[in-house]
């Protein structure tokens, strides 16, 4: 996760509690492996106009337990292409890890009073969200230091590459040509 200068500003797409990963990206699209391809089908079953109307930088806002269900990393990938950040009261465990790992910002905050279409300004440095439509400020629940280190590294892959915990191996370039 990178921290954009000056924070994130975007339109809120409001969802309820327990948004599951089948709702975020239906099972039939799991054959796709790229963020832009998956993004075309994001929320297709529960909010069919989302993929067409979402614009780069928009913000997904939800209630409790966002991303419950399967371990498919296709879910945060389907969002990452357009969505700048997901704000929820709480996240399901595997979705939360997957989002942090791929660099999709996710933050916990009381979202009860944020409405669909509100313009939000998120300042990750300050740890605050400002709802410009409703003129209301919220405080983001801070991450544990361990998770913060992964975020600061830019995701899990970068964290592992930069650290000493991974035994360094010589990289052979010949085997990295994959069709997905």
């Amino acid at each position: 996760m990178t921290r954009p200068k000056g924070g994130i500003t975007g339109r809120a797409w409001k969802f309820g509690d327990n948004v599951d990963t089948d709702a975020i990206i239906p099972g039939k699209y799991l054959v796709l492996n790229s963020s832009p391809d998956l993004a075309e089908h994001a929320f297709e079953n529960v909010r069919p106009n989302f993929a067409h109307q979402v614009t780069k930088g928009d913000i997904v806002v939800a209630g409790e337990n966002f991303g419950c269900g399967s371990s498919r990393e296709h879910a945060p990938l389907a969002l990452k292409n357009n969505v700048s950040i997901v704000i929820a009261r709480s996240f399901a465990r595997i979705f939360f890890r997957n989002a942090i790992n791929i660099g999709l910002p996710v933050v916990e905050c009381d979202t009860t009073e944020i409405e669909d279409g509100d313009i939000l300004h998120v300042d990750l440095e300050k740890g605050s969200i400002y709802d410009e439509t409703r003129k209301k400020e919220y405080v983001i629940t801070p991450f544990p230091p361990f998770i913060k280190r992964i975020i600061e590294a830019g995701g899990l892959v970068e964290y592992v590459k930069s650290g000493t915990q991974l035994e360094k191996r010589e990289r052979r370039e010949t085997e990295t040509e994959l069709s997905w």
């Binding site: 269900g69 399967s70 371990s71 498919r72 990393e73 945060p76 595997i94 890890r97 997957n98 790992n101 791929i102 995701g155 899990l156 892959v157 592992v160 915990q165 991974l166 035994e167």
Partner: peptide, 28 residues
Amino acid sequence: DSHTCTYGALGAFATGVGSTDMGVALAS
């Protein structure tokens, strides 16, 4: 796969992870 928790039936600690977690585990 999220239903990896099934193997707890044998007294293992088994948990589902996403693909990046798995990729990192496969590497390290």
